[in-house]
């Protein structure tokens, strides 16, 4: 019998801890499959943040460093500078990366560290219970914007790809979505490209993955897909923002 799909060997046999319909699982599958495919498990060091994004850190096989909240880019800088032959991936959510860790994110990108960032943007703080994130959509209801974002001086959603692509050093900046098979395949290609760049020491790559959080969006997984397609992608247009490879 032909095996058409199997779980990545980079997962330890244990149940996962993500909610139904959450995109972290898909993002992890892509990441681990690609690490498998490229034979990078031995070289890989995954830098996890604080928040839901860190939920997988105990059941992946590559070595993991669990960074303080928002500081993954600085931690990754220390790792990569001391171990330049290692393959360093940062996996961060939007609160971690674009709020508390904005300075670290921008400055690591500006130094052009030879690492890869996988940025999960689900427009909300997940683990803490659905508060407004820097990426929360205009009008989006959260536990800290009960009437919707934008009425009380919360500003507008921060668009990281657009910001990072203005910097000199980053070499590949792209946004994908994880809402349907077509988009997932594109995301997979983008991640592979970014990983390949690091293997070839070609500079910094930033991959944003628009993700769903049905639990905190208070939508069913199916309606979350619809919300993503009809609203989120309009605010955060998909595509390659910078490519200098």
């Amino acid at each position: 019998m032909e095996i058409v799909y199997k779980k990545s060997s980079n997962f330890i046999e244990a149940g996962h801890s993500f909610c139904p319909g959450c995109s972290h699982g898909i993002a992890h599958n892509i990441m681990m499959d690609t690490i498998d495919e490229m034979g990078l498990a031995e070289k890989a060091i995954l830098v996890y943040p604080v928040g839901c994004a860190a939920n997988a850190m105990t059941y992946v096989k590559p070595n993991v460093v669990h960074a303080p909240h928002g500081r993954a880019p600085a931690v990754a800088t220390g790792i990569k500078r001391c171990a330049p032959d290692k393959f360093v991936v940062l996996y961060q959510g939007d609160g971690d990366l674009a709020a508390i860790g904005m300075a670290e994110t921008i400055h690591m990108a500006n130094r052009g560290e030879h690492v890869t960032t996988i940025y999960i943007n689900n427009t909300i703080y997940g683990m803490t219970g659905g508060q407004m994130a820097p990426t929360t959509m205009m009008g989006q209801i959260t536990t800290t914007t009960r009437e919707g974002r934008g009425l009380h001086g919360e500003g507008q959603p921060i668009k990281m790809c657009e910001m990072i692509s203005t910097l000199g050093e980053p070499k590949f900046v792209a946004r994908y979505a994880l809402d349907n098979a077509k988009h997932v395949i594109e995301a997979r290609k983008g991640i592979k490209k970014a990983f390949q760049m690091q293997v070839e020491d070609k500079g910094y790559a930033f991959i944003e993955l628009l993700s769903m959080c049905p639990s905190n969006w208070h939508l069913s997984p199916k309606d979350s897909v619809k919300y993503m397609e009809e609203e989120v992608i309009k605010t955060f247009p998909l595509g390659v923002y910078k490519e200098e490879v």
Partner: peptide, 24 residues
């Protein structure tokens, strides 16, 4: 060796966090 000027005190401390985790 390597010297990095951090963008902040926090970033500098976290670079140490990363470097230390490699046993350096």
């Amino acid at each position: 060796g390597t010297y990095v000027q951090g963008e902040s005190e926090m970033a500098s401390m976290n670079m140490i966090f990363g470097a230390a985790s490699t046993g350096t």
